[in-house]
C-alpha cells in the first residue's frame, strides 16, 4: 500500500469539493474548503516521509549529521499552506457575515442574482 497516503489526499480533495458543491450554507462551504485544502497537507507530508527517519530537528551539534530525516522543505511548505488556509478562512467568513447583513441569507442557492 505504498500509495495509500496519496489516495487519502485525493479523497480529501474530492470530498471537500463535493461538500462545497452540495452546500446550503456559506459557513459550511468554508469548512468544506478547509477540508479540501487539508488534502495538500497530507500530500506534502506524505511526499516528505521516509520510513524510519527522524524529524528534521537536530539536538546538539552533530559531528557527522545523518541525512536520514524527513524532508524539511515540504514540511515548511505545509506550514505556509496552513497559514494561507487560516487567512483564507478568516477572509471568507468575514465575507459570509457581510453577505448575511446585506442579503439576509447565507444559502448559496438563494444568492443567485448579482447585485452591485
Amino acid at each position: 500500500m505504498s500509495i495509500y497516503a496519496y489516495v487519502v489526499a485525493g479523497w480529501l480533495l474530492v470530498m471537500g469539493s463535493l461538500g462545497i458543491v452540495r452546500s446550503r450554507n456559506l459557513v459550511h462551504a468554508v469548512v468544506c474548503l478547509g477540508i479540501a485544502q487539508s488534502a495538500t497537507y497530507v500530500l506534502l507530508l506524505g511526499v516528505g516521509y521516509q520510513r524510519g527517519a527522524k524529524p528534521p530537528v537536530y539536538g546538539s551539534a552533530p559531528a557527522h549529521p545523518s541525512l536520514h530525516v524527513m524532508d524539511p522543505v515540504v514540511q515548511a511548505m505545509t506550514l505556509t499552506d496552513i497559514v494561507v488556509s487560516a487567512t483564507v478562512t478568516a477572509l471568507l467568513l468575514a465575507l459570509a457575515i457581510q453577505i448575511r447583513k446585506r442579503r439576509g441569507t447565507i444559502d448559496p442557492d438563494e444568492l443567485t442574482a448579482i447585485e452591485g
Binding site: 495509500y4 496519496y6 485525493g10 506524505g46 521516509q50 522543505v73
Partner: peptide
C-alpha cells in the same frame, strides 16, 4: 491524480533530493 501518484517515488522511500540539499 491517480495516474500521477502511480508514477511518484513510493511512499516512505529514501529518495528526497530537496532534503539532501536543504539539511547541509
Amino acid at each position: 491524480f491517480l495516474l500521477a501518484v502511480l508514477d511518484m517515488p513510493p511512499f516512505g522511500s529514501r529518495f528526497h533530493p530537496y532534503r539532501n540539499h536543504s539539511v547541509p
